[in-house]
Design a protein around this nucleic acid. Structure first.
Length: 271
DNA sequence: AGTGCGGCCTGTCCGC
DNA sequence: TGCGGACAGGCCGCAC
């Protein structure tokens, strides 16, 4: 489900409810996520206060002073702020209850998500240490992408979806950004010029920023921390529009599989 | 070192 | 209406 805008939307939606609140209890109903949820999590978290909520890539980091709770939503995960009276739903795997009676619930049908605890600096955690720059920060620019891509023969779409290159660009926004930049998704990353990377970087930044403004993309069931859907799906140029006409030139869009992911592009607009 | 896959899961939809 | 198979927004870990 979630790419960077959805994770950012979730973090922003959840933060005001949990900041400064003390964790009263944690219940693990099903700890079989991507990695097992640490069984000692309830005793570790009990009594700790949430000092900060941040995002790094697609990880949400809850700073609890003594350590950080790392949350990844995987393909189908979501966080929901509620209270104890609201009945648990199927696939509500973990519930964190705060002393002000609100409850933060981790819901994830496919269980590709993760909830982990680290007492070291989160940036040094095994899962975060190799991550590339944030796409909306200034160190992610055309010359960076250009340099990293030299001698790379893999398709540019796979290249920008590689979290070691840049974080947060998932399948939807990779398709969208390549359309906006007019770049063919199968083109070898190492054979794209600096000016074209300039366009691509601008496209990635603008598509992610406006998706965040719209509250994320709701395709099936994405909801933010308050249960509200996002509206960005109304602005998608290519994703989910295979064989429909291109919104720019009117020609037919083409849908292919590239690195096992659905890829949509315009035969005329993207070279 | 870079590349390309298998696999982790459940839910949904499509074609027969 | 039922059933099998493909597919879904992610990404680690492995073999080459």
């Amino acid at each position: 489900m979630p790419e960077l805008p959805e994770v950012e939307t979730t973090a922003r939606g959840v933060a005001p409810h949990v900041l400064g609140q003390t964790i009263a209890d944690v219940s693990i109903r099903d700890g079989r996520l991507r990695w097992p949820v640490p069984a000692q999590l309830p005793q570790v978290l009990r009594g700790l206060c949430v000092h900060d909520v941040r995002r790094r890539g697609k990880y949400i980091l809850f700073d609890c002073g003594r350590g950080h709770l790392l949350v990844h939503l995987g393909m189908s995960g979501s966080l929901r702020v509620t209270t104890g009276e609201v009945p648990l739903r199927r696939h509500d795997h973990i519930a964190i209850r705060f002393s002000n009676a609100i409850e933060l619930r981790f819901h994830d049908p496919r269980r590709f998500g993760a909830m982990l605890w680290t007492e070291a600096s989160p940036a040094e955690h095994k899962l975060l240490v190799g991550l590339g720059p944030e796409p909306l920060e200034s160190d992610f620019d055309a010359s960076y992408l250009y340099q990293r891509s030299r001698h790379r023969r893999s398709p540019v779409k796979a290249f920008i979806m590689d979290s070691k290159v840049v974080v947060g660009v998932g399948n939807i926004y990779a398709n969208e950004a390549l359309f906006i930049a007019g770049i063919h998704p199968t083109r070898a990353a190492g054979r794209i010029s600096l000016p074209r990377y300039q366009h691509l970087v601008e496209a990635i930044k603008s598509v992610l920023a406006s998706a965040i403004e719209q509250g994320g993309t709701t395709l099936r069931d994405f909801v933010n921390g308050d249960g509200q859907p996002g509206y960005f799906s109304q602005q998608l140029w290519v994703y989910g529009r295979g064989s429909k006409p291109c919104g720019r030139c009117g020609g037919a869009l083409r849908e292919i599989r590239l690195a096992q992911r659905t890829t949509v592009y315009c035969l005329k607009c993207q070279r």
